[in-house]
């Protein structure tokens, strides 16, 4: 790995101050399982002068109950998210999503905040510098999205215009279904955004001097049922080809509220609002489920090689709803 300076931050304020001192030439490291890959492969034209360790900020690693629900520090390890009994019980789709990430060793290192902030896995974007040089593209600020004419089997089937890389985060999908809110702290103060507002086509809304400082998840409505399904070619290691998280509230056999979120289909997590609308107020049956899946994918525009993702996503939606309704 190319050289950089390493600085340990002991508080959020210090971390922000350090980023500012380095004028955009610094990056934050938490679990490191994504960042070190980016740095080793030198996939980006800019290499940081400094890496700022935030693992040493004590107030960012916690899972706390409060009146509104659960507050999770972004430095919480995925393994701790998986093992937490309350998360397992009340926020099961998050627990499942965290358990579906990568491998046991990575879950022992990677953090929830890092899983949300990780960079995309697009194989053009990730192409290493040392086997002929990195590939430039729209996301890196030069040239078109290489996936448009290239091998786009894993790329977006909806919602993409300039960059067709998909959001790789599994936990983001679950947190979106759970209507989580993220607390962002920067030199300008603290702001709160919903999970879906956080993500953008080219990553997220974090400004260079901001970091994620809390994840607040409200308790799901009473009687709400949850599901998380992830489709991969293999169980461990893989990032999602498609995933679905849903939180559905049923009352007397009628769907009262629904959040259905799709992963790995677009540059950001996608709330399938049409699908949600199509089931609210209805009794759950095969036809309703079928319609919901069709509604969710109505706007899909698959690329040359990824129409299969549309079919798979439909199936995941149907299976998620079926598991909830049963």
């Amino acid at each position: 790995m190319k050289a950089f300076k390493h600085i340990t931050a002991n508080s959020v304020e210090e971390a922000i101050a350090l980023i500012r001192t380095h004028n955009g030439k610094a990056c934050l490291i938490a679990g490191g399982t994504d960042l070190l890959g980016v740095l080793k492969d030198e996939i980006l034209p800019d290499y940081p002068a400094a890496v700022i360790n935030i693992k040493t900020i004590p107030e960012l690693d916690h899972i706390k109950k409060n009146n509104d629900g659960l507050k999770i520090g972004p430095l919480t390890k995925l393994a701790d998210v998986v093992a937490h009994p309350l998360i397992k019980k009340r926020f099961s789709c998050l627990s499942q999503a965290a358990a579906a990430v990568a491998t046991p060793e990575i879950r022992n290192m990677a953090t929830l905040g890092g899983n949300l902030c990780q960079d995309t896995r697009c194989w053009y974007y990730r192409y290493p510098q040392h086997v002929g040089g990195r590939i430039m593209c729209h996301r890196k600020g030069k040239g078109p999205c290489q996936a448009v004419k290239g091998d786009n089997r894993y790329h977006a089937i909806m919602g993409a215009k300039v960059c067709f890389a998909v959001c790789p985060s599994d936990t983001a999908i679950a947190l979106s279904a759970l209507d989580a809110e993220l607390e962002i702290t920067g030199s300008q103060g603290v702001r709160n955004v919903s999970l879906n507002e956080f993500f953008t086509t080219l990553g997220n809304i974090l400004k260079p001097d901001e970091l994620l400082t809390n994840i607040q998840i409200p308790y799901p409505p009473k009687g709400a049922k949850q599901a998380f399904l992830k489709f991969t070619l293999r169980k461990p290691v893989d990032f999602a080809i498609a995933s679905v998280a849903s939180v559905i509230t049923m009352q007397d056999g009628i769907c009262k509220a629904a959040r259905i979120v799709l992963g790995a289909v677009a540059p950001t997590p996608v709330r399938a609002t049409d699908a949600e609308a199509s089931i609210i107020g209805k009794a759950a049956d095969g036809v309703v489920i079928e319609e919901a899946a069709e509604a969710a994918m109505a706007g899909a525009k698959p690329m040359r090689m990824n129409a299969y993702k549309v079919e798979i996503t439909k199936t995941l939606i149907k299976r998620a709803l079926l598991s909830i309704f049963q």
């Binding site: 390493h6 490191g32 399982t33 360790n53 990575i106 290192m109």
Partner: peptide
Amino acid sequence: GIPILSCMTLTVE
């Protein structure tokens, strides 16, 4: 005591 990947861990940390 916890298994981790030493290739993805910075020694200074």
